[in-house]
Amino acid sequence: MSEFTIAQREREAVHVLELKGYLDAHTAPKLEEAFQGLLKDQRFNIIVNCKDLSYISSAGLGVFMAYIEDVRKNNGDIKLSNMSTKVYNVFDLLGFPLLYEITPDEQDAYNKFGNALTRK
């Protein structure tokens, strides 16, 4: 049963993860694995496109917390985009917008990497 899937693609120096389905304690290890792979490959500019993400629990939020420090230490960032109101409300309830840039659209998130990309 594929209740949660991740599609990955490159946009120049930015890596995009597209999440689909239900991100809970059962499926969170899949996202962890994806982040581990990106860090191993030294990919630190990351957009997580949540357009098709239907659900998130604290297990999913915990994955973002687990990697943000390492990513930022390497001058990168994890930016989130295209969240449904339902998913955004969970991030917002815990104050995650204080720590993470959350944009309505993937292009906005991509543009925010602008300076970082020209430094490369």
Binding site: S57, S58, L61, G62, M65, A66, I68, E69, V90, L93, L94, G95, L98, L99
Partner: peptide, 14 residues
């Protein structure tokens, strides 16, 4: 929590 990049412990709070 955010300034120290803490992990876990959010379930009960939620």
């Amino acid at each position: 929590y955010f300034s120290h990049f803490r992990k876990g412990g959010l379930g009960v709070y939620l």
